[in-house]
């Protein structure tokens, strides 16, 4: 089986599995919305403040929801033991990583698609500008690239829900800064803004590569 076929096969298996248990999706979505609502109370959203606070609120919601989703997938696999059986097959470990990554991105992406319009409504901001899609896509890729690798690491420990955010948050700081600033520039265009999207893209390339190459060391027993 060539590499791409392996990726798609594993991805399809995961998607089918997750489609059966809908609780994670609804859980993540509700969580994202709750964070947005809480932000409304946490920050005094008079009109002039909104553009400043809205991007931050959005990305806090996305990051936290992503971490919820990341933790679940690999932990579930270890619990039912399917990971061990998968490792027995002569599957390229990089294919496993890519499949997990794409699966995570799909789940997080669905939550983002649902949360965005509601976010735009709650904060009353015009969000569906053209450049939003690349920002969200590339940022999610960055978070998922690092997160997939570390969820495999943390899955072996008992305190995985606690450990995963502790490991991932510091490392995705460039993404968070870039995403919030880039989204902010969308809402309130500024001059002399650094190339945030470029930063996020560079981050993605680097850490996608490194994570893919080091995944095998993390997943083997």
């Amino acid at each position: 089986m060539i590499f791409l076929e392996q990726v798609i096969a594993i991805l399809w298996k995961d998607v089918r599995y997750e489609l059966r248990s809908k609780q994670m999706w609804t859980g993540m979505g509700l969580f994202a919305l709750l964070v947005l609502v809480i932000f409304n109370f946490a920050f005094d959203l008079r009109v002039d403040n909104k553009a400043a606070v809205a991007p931050g609120a959005l990305w806090v919601a996305f990051v936290f929801a992503s971490l919820l989703g990341l933790g679940r997938t690999i932990a579930a696999e270890r619990e039912i033991g399917s990971m061990d059986r998968l490792l027995l097959c002569p599957v390229d470990r990089k294919a496993i990583y890519l499949a997990k990554l794409l699966g995570n991105m799909l789940f997080i992406g669905v939550v983002e698609i649902v949360a965005l319009p509601i976010f735009a409504a709650l904060f009353n901001v015009p969000l569906f500008v053209g450049a939003l899609l690349p920002i969200v896509l590339l940022s999610t890729l960055g978070i998922a690239a690092v997160g997939t690798l570390f969820s495999a690491m943390a899955a072996a420990t008992r305190a995985r829900e606690l450990l995963l955010p502790i490991l991932v948050f510091p490392l995705i700081v460039p993404i968070v800064i870039g995403a919030v600033r880039a989204t902010g520039t969308l809402l309130a265009p500024a001059v002399n803004e650094p190339p945030w999207l470029g930063l996020i893209a560079a981050f993605d390339v680097i850490f996608l590569t490194v994570s893919m190459l080091t995944f095998e060391y993390v997943i083997e027993e």
Binding site: V173, I206, Y217
Partner: peptide, 19 residues
């Protein structure tokens, strides 16, 4: 693996905070 990722990331973090 964590150390490798961290080492590569720290300069990127520094630059992004600078920006």
């Amino acid at each position: 693996v964590l150390a490798i990722i961290g080492l590569i990331d720290v300069p990127i973090i520094y630059e992004s905070v600078n920006w």
